[in-house]
């Protein structure tokens, strides 16, 4: 555990909690892509099946349980409790265009050809693109609430900090995982455009709105 890894995890946790609180307090999931949230629930489920097979640490287990629990709670709030506020018309990204190729890639490129390992790889690949429905929704409506941009910033920072963590682990432990690194780079690159808008607009007190 190094500082990048820890702050990455905390950033991820912050993102998840910001989103839950935003929906809960405003009693509305307007502007939030339910499809992205379903993909994240799938990501956590596929990756953390090792909860049932191996114990790493109290920290590891509790974070996994919190992530999975919050992911399903978010999906429940969007598709059940506050369904009336869900903006399905603007959430029109075709997720099968992500899930099918990513599933194929996980079967083809993995560390070990075993069910758990393929599911882990699938979750790594899927996570890297799971935010696309949300970004697509923002580009379609041309704007995002400020609280939604804070959520996206924390979520983007999490994988960016993991990249630093992997550089650290490579230098100090000689450890690297090419699958995680490449997927993590892809994931971070997808946020670059958003990071730019966040710094130039939201941090200067303006609402994030895209030119028509």
């Amino acid at each position: 555990m190094n500082i990048f890894r820890l702050t990455g995890d905390l950033s991820h946790l912050a993102a998840i909690i910001i989103l839950l609180l935003k929906i809960w307090k405003s009693r509305s999931c307007a502007g939030i892509s339910g499809k992205s949230q379903i993909l994240f629930a799938i990501v956590f489920t596929a990756r953390y099946l090792d909860l049932l097979t191996s114990f790493i640490s109290v920290y590891n287990t509790s974070m996994k349980v919190i992530y999975i629990g919050c992911a399903y709670a978010t999906v429940y709030l969007i598709y059940a409790k506050f369904r009336a506020t869900y903006d399905g018309n603007h959430d029109s990204f075709r997720v099968e265009f992500l899930v099918v190729p990513v599933g194929g890639l996980a079967v083809l490129i993995n560390h070990t050809f075993s069910p758990l390992e393929i599911l882990w790889t699938f979750s790594i690949y899927l996570e890297s693109v799971a935010i696309l429905p949300q970004l697509f929704m923002i580009s379609k409506t041309g704007e995002a609430e400020t609280i939604t941009t804070h959520y996206l910033f924390c979520l983007g920072m999490y994988r960016t900090l993991y990249l630093f963590n992997w550089v650290w682990r490579f230098y100090f432990e000689g450890f690297f995982d090419m699958i995680a690194i490449v997927a993590g780079l892809v994931q971070t690159v997808l946020y670059c455009d958003f990071f730019y808008l966040y710094v130039t607009k939201v941090l200067k007190g303006k609402k994030l709105s895209l030119p028509a």
Partner: peptide
Amino acid sequence: KQANQTKDEL
């Protein structure tokens, strides 16, 4: 083993 070491990450 390389693959297992990443599993301590989230």
